[in-house]
Nucleic acid binder design. Structure first.
Lengths: 124, 124
DNA sequence: CTGTATCCTCAGTGATACTG
DNA sequence: CAGTATCACTGAGGATACAG
């Protein structure tokens, strides 16, 4: 893999793909974007996202925690309380993520056009 | 969804997610990166990627073409020849993609560390 | 050579009920 | 409240054979 003039070794390349993969999964980016606003509790994330199941919310949060993008703070009261927030690493990854999201935003029209052009060209 | 100070409307937000989704799928980024080097034929992409099935290679190429990131040029010889290359839009998306990939590259160590820390904390 | 068609598997995802 | 356990389903993805 090459990035600009840099030749990227295979192992590192896989890691990059792996990270991009995680960020590309169904809920990660959304969670990161929400947590950038402010720390949130489990139930609050659940309410904000609405369409996510407990299972996937938990799974995604665990992945993000494992990769060091978010931190998880348990307050062992009864009932328990768990707060999630972006870690330093998580805040830092927001920058390149923003660049990409903003690009997508700026160019969404061109993509929509490309799609309808493609679709009308390939219709029966 | 919010990006920085900008409030993003729901429709557009979905599109962004949709685009990020595509870029996040298993082969798209890899293909884009390969095609940035130079235009390639179908078979060349197949050989370069090695582990991709014909089905997924074709599917991914179609998606990228539909979104306007690559162009497909058929030379109707026998046997046929098909060349793929980045479109203008495709070359432009490389920039934000590079930013993200470079970030991942620069910070891969921190992520690997975070992972082993998490794993050793959670494994008994 | 560049695909399409078919069949198959399995990881990702969701719904629901249950627990500390 | 914040999960885990369980079951079920779907679609992504792969292997292979075949076609233009």
């Amino acid at each position: 893999m090459r990035l600009g003039n840099v030749d990227v070794p295979r192992d590192t390349c896989q890691l990059v793909g792996n990270i991009l993969g995680h960020l590309g999964d169904k809920w990660s980016v959304l969670i990161i974007v929400l947590l950038r606003e402010r720390p949130m509790r489990y139930s609050e994330l659940e309410r904000q996202i609405e369409t996510v199941s407990k299972k996937m919310l938990t799974t995604t949060l665990r992945h993000l925690e494992r990769d060091g993008f978010i931190s998880r703070a348990v307050t062992p009261t009864i009932p328990p309380r768990v707060d999630y927030q972006l870690s330093e690493l998580g805040r830092e990854v927001m920058e390149p993520l923003d660049v990409l999201a903003r690009w997508a935003l700026r160019n969404s029209d061109r993509i929509v056009e490309a799609r309808s052009r493609y679709d009308s060209d390939h219709e029966p």
